[in-house]
Each structure stands twice: as C-alpha cells, then as structure tokens.
C-alpha cells in the first residue's frame, strides 16, 4: 500500500492542481480569475507530460557528456539520460500557451472598454437589459 502511494502521489497532486484550475474557470465570475485558472490548468498538463520523461535510478539531464570524443558513441547508455521527447513537446506547448494568454488579455481589454466591468454576471445583465429595451446604447459601435 505504501509502495502504491509512493509510486502514484505525484499524479494525484497533478490532478489536484488541474482541478483547482478547472474550478477557477467554472466557478469564478471574474474574467481575469478565469484566465489565471486557464494558466494553472495548462501548467498542470505540461507538468504531467514532463514527469513522464523522468527515469529514477541515476539518470541525468539529456546533454551528452562525451560528445567531442572519438569513442563517444560507445559510452552512451540509454538508462543514463532522461527521455528528451516530452521536454521538446512541452517546450512548444509553453510557447503556445503564452500566445493564447496574450490574445485573451487583448480581448479582455476590449471587453472592459465596451462594458466597463470584468464581472461575468454584470456583463450578462448589461447585455440582457440592452436587448430588452431595444436601445443598444452600450453596444453602439460608435461609442
């Protein structure tokens, strides 16, 4: 039982992190809070993928030590180096996550310019009111 917990507790903490991000995206009303939750969610998934490349038992970072030597090829043992493939893929994922965050923040600034609030329920109330009275004073494009 203790062995099972020691082998799996990392995964459980990643799931807890992911659920914190999901709760911030679902339960919070502020749009910046939702964006922070999205960042936490993305980071937990990247953490899970990076952790699949870990090898216990003396493996080091995937940079070869004897690269310049002539007999370097014979010295390479696969179990001596970590798995480089998840690192490469998650490098791409981090850069894509900053791109989505940037576009989302630009959209957030536009939303604030139009509605003067960032709370989701207030934005929905303003939209409902302007639709009910047929006076699009806030949704006016020349505003």
């Amino acid at each position: 039982m203790t062995e099972y917990i020691l082998a799996k507790y990392n995964y459980w903490i990643y799931v807890v992190l992911m659920m914190i991000g999901l709760y911030a995206m679902m339960g919070k009303r502020n749009l910046v809070k939702k964006l922070i939750g999205m960042n936490i969610f993305q980071t937990s998934i990247i953490l899970l993928f990076v952790s699949t490349g870990v090898k216990k038992g003396g493996a080091t970072v995937p940079i070869l030590m004897h690269a310049g030597h002539e007999h370097g090829a014979q010295l390479i043992q696969v179990s001596d180096y970590l798995n480089p493939l998840p690192h490469v893929l998650m490098l791409t994922a981090i850069v894509v996550s900053i791109a989505t965050t940037g576009v989302a923040l630009a959209t957030l600034i536009l939303i604030y310019k139009r509605y003067h609030t960032l709370e989701e329920d207030e934005i929905l109330a303003i939209r409902r009111e302007s639709r009910a009275y047929k006076t699009p004073r806030i949704l006016n494009p020349t505003d």
């Binding site: 082998a7 090829a73 696969v78 480089p84």
Partner: peptide
C-alpha cells in the same frame, strides 16, 4: 498509469532510445 519515474515505462522505451543514441552522431 506506470509508476512515477519508471525507466521501463512505455513512454521511455519506444522512440526516445533512438534519439539518445543517434542524435549526436
């Protein structure tokens, strides 16, 4: 899922050994 940090897990035993042994060459 395989145990955390298992050197023989499927993710560690299929594509990446080729990269580790042949990338420098």
């Amino acid at each position: 899922m395989p145990a955390w940090g298992d050197p023989d897990s499927p993710a560690n035993s299929h594509v990446s050994p080729r990269y580790i042994t042949e990338a420098t060459k």
